[in-house]
């Protein structure tokens, strides 16, 4: 467990304009021994203020908020480096669209979690973010992997990779648009194992963190620079 390596739980700021959503997310996070919600905000501007006056390790931002959107707040928070490292940022969103994911990366977030899978993904996304790794949401994972396979087929130079047989199977299933759950069922392995394969694949393709991912997405033309 992560908590063993860092005894104090990670301090989280939660920003969402819907109080009941905040409460639901908070209950899920506070159950984990290594995570604790220390502050809440109901819009982007308030989130920026909280970051300024509270010690925070991770900010979870809803994309659609009044006054200042989650993306604007993420940019603002990334800029506040006066007190050292800015906190890690994770976006929480209704939109199942890879453009929001890439835009979030550009704004400085290291992950993107869909609200419709928040009950499953949020905790592992928080842990990945705290480790400094990117949490790629499945829709964008498909786009990235498909583009990678296209380039390989066209004989373009791609990072030299040695995927294990299992990782190769997972890669193909991701490209076909399967969810982690479906992949787990197809290969009769646990969802956790699928997630680990996913993380390994990304690392081997040179897309471990948000900087590498953003660079790749721009080069591949998935987003505008």
């Amino acid at each position: 467990m992560r908590a063993a390596t860092s005894p104090a739980p990670a301090r989280i700021l939660l920003a969402d304009d819907h109080a009941l959503v905040r409460r639901g997310v908070r209950l899920i996070l506070d159950q984990e021994p290594d995570l604790t919600v220390v502050a809440e905000a109901s819009d982007g501007a308030e989130a920026v203020d909280r970051v300024r006056d509270t010690e925070i390790d991770l900010v979870i931002l809803d994309i659609a908020m009044p006054r200042m959107t989650g993306l604007q707040a993420a940019r603002e928070i990334g800029r506040r480096t006066a007190r050292g490292e800015p906190p890690k940022v994770l976006m929480l969103s209704m939109h199942d669209n890879e453009q929001y994911f890439f835009e979030s990366l550009k704004a400085g977030a290291c992950g993107y979690v869909l609200k419709s899978v928040a009950d499953e993904d949020l905790v592992s996304a928080c842990r990945a973010a705290l480790r400094g790794e990117a949490f790629v949401y499945p829709g964008a994972m498909g786009a990235l992997v498909r583009d990678y396979l296209d380039r390989m087929r066209r004989g373009e130079r791609v990072p030299e990779t040695v995927l294990t047989e299992r990782e190769d199977q997972v890669l193909k299933l991701i490209a076909e648009g399967s969810s982690s759950r479906e992949i787990a069922r197809a290969l009769t392995i646990s969802i956790k194992t699928v997630e680990r394969h996913r993380a390994n694949i990304l690392a081997k393709l040179g897309m471990r963190d948000r900087t590498q991912l953003t660079r790749y997405a721009i080069r591949a033309g998935l987003i505008e620079p």
């Binding site: 959503v21 639901g24 899920i28 209704m94 009950d119």
Partner: peptide, 21 residues
Amino acid sequence: LHDDIGQQLTVVLLGLKQAEQ
């Protein structure tokens, strides 16, 4: 749909996860 119904359903989803545990 996004702001009202979507948020309400998110609340239900997270609540059910809690209840389940």
